[in-house]
Design a protein around this nucleic acid. Sequence first.
DNA 1: ACGGATATTGACCAGTGTGGTCTATTTTTG
DNA 2: CAAAAATAGACCACACTGGTCAATATCCGT
Lengths: 209, 209
Amino acid sequence: MNDTFLKLDKEKQQRIINAALLEFAEKGYKYASTNEIVKRAGIGKGMLFYYFNSKKELYYFLVNYCIDSVMEQFVGKIDTSITDMIERLAHISYLKLKYFKENPEISHFLVTFFLKETEPLPEELQKKYERMFQIGMDKVYVFNQIQYDSFRDDIDPKKAVQLIEWMLSGYQRDFMQKYQGKGIDDIPLDELWNDFDEYLQILKTCFYK
Amino acid sequence: MNDTFLKLDKEKQQRIINAALLEFAEKGYKYASTNEIVKRAGIGKGMLFYYFNSKKELYYFLVNYCIDSVMEQFVGKIDTSITDMIERLAHISYLKLKYFKENPEISHFLVTFFLKETEPLPEELQKKYERMFQIGMDKVYVFNQIQYDSFRDDIDPKKAVQLIEWMLSGYQRDFMQKYQGKGIDDIPLDELWNDFDEYLQILKTCFYK
DNA sequence: ACGGATATTGACCAGTGTGGTCTATTTTTG
DNA sequence: CAAAAATAGACCACACTGGTCAATATCCGT
């Protein structure tokens, strides 16, 4: 990775990164085209290789970039002090949706990355990726004291948690499908959070004592 | 479409169809490779074009083939006499999972088809596709008499239905992710349906009066 | 204002893979 | 046994690939 790239004004950097994220997201590593990337980024072909040396290095840079972003803007923001189960899961959902809205290109790239990607990462990067995953999992699922006591007695709380997670991920998926591709500001956020809250209320009414 | 293809023994036909479905599923119309298809199907290059004339015709044939299959093996089997809301939705889920298990290649192809595909269909085929969708929707959602009365009075039944659908689709997604790629018979079905039933019971306990 | 360094472009390269054709061969059939 | 149908795969022109590099534009210290 050439320093020159880092010295670019942020707007141009972003343009290049987003163009590359989009191309890799759409086609996966192998079939992504560097020609397409430079065209979308509006730079000369030579520059991409001046900045990144090779397609592979560019790809690694992006993965690393995404990990850092997710760690900072998602994992790092998880509030582990919330002890109510539903509130905790809803908090996670909220952060995920917020992240998706604020970083649609990265989100798109990451979805492709861990659903389809077959290209291996260099060991170090792979480790970093797994570490992020582990930290995320811990923050989401490890309560100091798992609080199952608020659930009704006539259901298996573990299954209930699973059901609730499914519902929240359903809400997320609908959200993403609906607003993918739309500009950040076209999304009527207040309305959506209200809606989301109503669903949460129902969950509490139905699953808690 | 050449008649010769239809006269082939079923096994060879299936091999070709599945090879093509897989390739289109993985890469989408534009980037699918006919070379890859013939290699996977174990036939000479010429034959594919002898049977189907062009990549495009092959693709249309597959779409049509999938529609017919889904109509017969999924939509056609929906039992519209089930009036209990949760039972009805669960019935649909059950049929979907069964279809997925019995037709993994078609399922894979169809997922790509309506999530990513940009290649347009000829008018007639497009209409047929939309008709299938419409009939499916009607069968799933149009009850002669929508029965909201079994839901508890303190929740909005429409939102509840939405939540239940999300849960079921979550179960489906987990199922598919877990068993995609595995042979049909490796799946411990009885176990899974029992599990599924337990989730259903919880839903009824929680959402019904 | 100059000149060396740095940044940038895009024509160009060899190589690979494309959809599709066609001839030569094998298999089927009457 | 010959005419017809089915099959294989070498071959085609072409599009596109990741990457290079010489030419040029821009910047910056003097």
